[in-house]
Amino acid sequence: MTKSLRDYTPARVDLGRSGHSLPTRELLDFQLAHAQARDAVHLALDVNSLAVELNQKNIPSIALASAAPDRTTYLHRPDLGRQLNPDSRERLQELKSSYDAVFVIADGLSAPAVHRHATPLLEAILPKLDWNIAPVTIVQQGRVAIGDEIGEILGAKLAVVLIGERPGLSSPDSLGIYLTWNPRPGRTDAERNCISNVRAEGLSYTLAAHKLLFLMNEARRLRLSGVPLKESAQALPPHG
């Protein structure tokens, strides 16, 4: 019985108390976590550094922006974060071809997640793919569904969106991956597959790339994504 409750859970248990309130240290620890999460939401995506970084790894990319011009509009108007602005749309149309897949990097609700995890994850997955891949698109103020429009314009059979997830207090930099077969505007969440929680304390790049490769191959084989793909994936033995 000498074990602390904290040995059983990452939850904020056994905090002690000052009167009926939180002790100072616990109060400030919480404030720090909240400050980090808030900063993560509001930090601007550094598109240039990301493009340079990808270029150094010989990964071609193109920088785009959604129809939400700033963070405040983005948070108020989810619909604008799901569509490209006219200039981006025009530039993307010049790249129209027939691709097996396009990778879309979007800030979502956490640019730090993208800064930290997007490049390493692409490095882990791209060498495993003998696919005709479109240039990587980097989108500012983007939501998951913007991959639908991008995929349709480019003529890609599959859109893979790497996006900053809504930050929790203990996870300000969690990256999510969303797959959509035959992407075009109007696709619903039920038609997507998601791999969540890619970060240092969560899912590793290797494991995330492993799961992603499996889902990409299955999506191409079954020519679909979403709930039916999830069900067939569950029937297979779990991966290490």
């Binding site: 939850a11 939180l22 919480f30």
Partner: peptide
């Protein structure tokens, strides 16, 4: 919620 921090739903409630 322990410490007002729901570590599963990723939001803050009351403690």
């Amino acid at each position: 919620v322990p410490g007002a921090d729901d570590i599963m739903l990723n939001y803050q409630s009351t403690s």
